[in-house]
Simulated scan of single mutants.
Amino acid sequence: MTTAKSAYPVPVAELLPQARQLVKHLGRTPSRNQLMAELRIGAPKARELLDRLAEEDQAKTPNPGGLHVVAEPAEAHHDESTETEAEAAEVEQATEPEPVPTEAQGAEHEAESAPTTTTADPAKPADKQAVKPMAVWPVMLLALPAFVAIWSGWVGLGQLTGFGIVHPLPGIADGFAINTAITLPIGVETYAAYALRVWLSGQVPARARRFAKYSALGSLALGALGQIAFHLMKAAGMTSAPWLITAAVACLPVAVLGMGAGLAHLIKDTHREVQQ
């Protein structure tokens, strides 16, 4: 026979009928611990209920001699309460309902109890493995015609601006000659493609990405202007370029060298960017 524990203290008057039923059920007066366990109350209320039950028994039992009940000495009553204080605490803890876990605690428990994931196994289905990168050979095929046109345009512009056959090793290899006009397409267009790759890779420091972005766009713009200048002069039948175009084209190898060296240093710089 048990009762649900309430959030508010139950008065002794309300617990008294339940204590009477417990007396009828046991056929005797229950002990204090039995009252505490069955009614889920503390030691003070259990003692008060026992006093009430004793008074009711005395009222029902005839007392011709005028005898009266002598109360326990306060000292003995205090000793009994101290001896059973730990036992009463254990009874109350045993009778308290288990706390209901909250949603956050339940989610944390599920996360802890969930099985740990393992690394991808080549034998598993393909949808659980890394996606295979797309092939780049179509881009190379598309770039081949553009490369031929750009190469011929830069070489022709170089010849119109004074680039031509030179002997780079006089006295060592007099027969070795090279046309310096090929340095224009190799330098400008190769740097533009490399800087574009560095900019879009996302694997370099922020300063290197900014430099690669603007220098790549600038190189592509210079390449487009060079092609326009060559085809306009070729269509006009010119055999030499004006001095402004010659001066600009002559500075291109130096500009490409400076941009390439600067980008290489910025790529290796992994320190934190200085805020200005």
Results as ranks from 00 to 15, higher is better:
residue 77 H to I: 06
residue 127 D to V: 09
residue 260 G to A: 11
residue 117 T to Y: 13
residue 74 A to V: 10
residue 196 L to F: 09
residue 24 K to C: 02
residue 217 L to V: 15
residue 249 V to W: 02
residue 218 G to L: 08
residue 137 W to H: 11
residue 171 G to F: 11
residue 71 A to S: 04
residue 137 W to M: 11
residue 246 T to G: 13
residue 224 A to F: 05
residue 203 Q to S: 13
residue 241 A to N: 09
residue 147 F to P: 02
residue 217 L to K: 13
residue 113 S to R: 02
residue 241 A to S: 05
residue 42 G to W: 08
residue 137 W to C: 11
residue 255 A to R: 04
residue 167 H to W: 13
residue 167 H to I: 03
residue 242 P to K: 00
residue 95 T to C: 01
residue 169 L to A: 09
residue 7 A to H: 09
residue 146 A to S: 14
residue 204 V to I: 03
residue 252 L to V: 10
residue 236 A to L: 03
residue 146 A to Y: 15
residue 165 I to L: 08
residue 222 L to K: 05
residue 181 A to R: 01
residue 193 A to N: 05
residue 42 G to M: 04
residue 18 Q to Y: 15
residue 65 G to E: 06
residue 210 R to W: 12
residue 248 A to C: 05
residue 128 K to D: 12
residue 215 S to E: 03
residue 207 R to L: 08
residue 185 P to Q: 02
residue 146 A to Q: 10
residue 60 K to T: 05
residue 168 P to C: 02
residue 247 A to H: 14
residue 27 G to H: 07
residue 121 D to K: 05
residue 98 E to D: 01
residue 190 T to N: 14
residue 14 E to G: 04
residue 184 L to Q: 00
residue 235 A to W: 15
residue 86 A to W: 14
residue 33 N to C: 13
residue 249 V to R: 02
residue 217 L to G: 12
residue 216 A to R: 03
residue 236 A to F: 08
residue 270 T to H: 15
residue 250 A to S: 15
residue 161 T to Q: 09
residue 259 M to V: 11
residue 45 K to N: 09
residue 42 G to R: 04
residue 201 S to M: 14
residue 133 P to W: 08
